[in-house]
């Protein structure tokens, strides 16, 4: 594993600092609302917008604060009040995606950053026995498989966008991104792979959770919801379910931050990153973009090099 995620031992202090900072921002009127997490009914943090200093006391920061919050900014496009938001490393990529796509003005943001060495996957932790879960949340996990997938390769522990940092930046280790799942699929023969994909994607129920959570899916109106032209048929047929994902993956190609949230929230458990990772991998291999998951000022499909591989020779 290229990265060795761990749990921050000082999360409780960080949580206190977060509540204090959010309360300060709200009471001094620097922001009208602060986006963070509060504890959900099952103990797992859920997104929460605090609008008073008192509400800031409900904010939590713990090993399960996995959901990214940047997408919720789109609900606050109207108006001109300032919005506070808390991000860790990968959360800041989601935020930067929204900013680079010009979907929210930076000047309306106050970003509170938290360096992060790893977050647990709430679903994996939920599957543990009660005692085991308690131990894991208290003393940290023994099994690295309990972390979110993105933690296993994360090279962005520190927020790339922030106005305030709540703890010291962590050392950064860069490694060449690897895409083992794509490599595995590529190793299959084509018919086998087609069969595999068909079996998967016809399970989609088009609940759109993946689209809703994706920071790169930030259009005012999704083209796949449009009627004229009908980019995608409305019928509940395996063909259209699959096309939804095949088109969506291309639409976020070059802008995907590899957070894997789509996969995490998928209600039927589709391994959606197998599609997104394919593009990330090819963008590196074909165009030499070393870290394709980092939002850039120029997106790989919005530029070219005269010396790009030629298509006629290619395959």
């Amino acid at each position: 594993m290229p990265n060795n995620p761990t749990l921050d031992k000082n999360m409780t202090e960080t949580e206190t600092a977060l509540r204090r900072e959010a309360a300060r921002l709200l009471s001094q009127g620097e922001v009208a609302v602060f986006l963070g997490h509060e504890e959900g009914w099952d103990g797992v943090p859920v997104p929460f917008a605090a609008s008073t200093a008192a509400e800031a006391g409900r904010l939590v920061w713990n090993p399960l604060s996995a959901p990214h919050l940047a997408k919720y900014l789109l609900d606050r496009l109207e108006g001109d009040e300032k919005v506070g938001i808390v991000v860790n490393g990968c959360g800041s990529l989601a935020l930067d995606r929204i900013l680079k796509d010009r979907r929210f003005p930076r000047e309306r943001l106050h970003v509170v950053g938290i360096p992060c060495s790893g977050m647990l996957d709430p679903a994996r932790v939920a599957a543990l026995s009660d005692e085991e879960r308690e131990r894991v949340l208290k003393d940290g996990p023994v099994d690295p498989g309990l972390f979110l997938d993105r933690c296993s390769w994360c090279d962005v522990p520190n927020p790339v966008v922030s106005d305030t940092l709540l703890s010291e930046p962590l050392p950064v280790v860069r490694h060449r991104p690897e895409y083992p799942r794509v490599a595995e699929l590529e190793a299959m023969d084509r018919e086998e792979r087609a069969e595999y994909l068909r079996g998967l994607y016809e399970r989609c129920i088009r609940c759109f959770a993946c689209r809703n959570v994706c920071p790169a899916c930030n259009c005012r109106e999704c083209c796949l919801d449009q009627w004229e032209p009908l980019w995608l048929g409305r019928a509940t047929s395996p063909a259209e379910q699959q096309m939804f994902h095949f088109i969506r993956a291309f639409d976020v190609a070059g802008r995907c931050i590899r957070c894997g949230e789509c996969e995490r929230v998928c209600s039927v458990g589709l391994p959606l990153m197998e599609l997104n990772d394919k593009f990330l991998k090819d963008i590196t291999e074909l165009f030499g973009v070393e870290r394709p998951h980092i939002p850039a000022d120029v997106e790989p499909l919005g530029c070219f090099e005269p010396g790009d591989p030629d298509l006629e020779d290619h395959g």
């Binding site: 993956a249 291309f250 394919k278 090819d282 790989p300 070219f304 790009d308 030629d310 298509l311």
Partner: peptide, 10 residues
Amino acid sequence: RRRLLLLKGY
């Protein structure tokens, strides 16, 4: 060419 290179592999 960039888009279609990606598309071909995809």
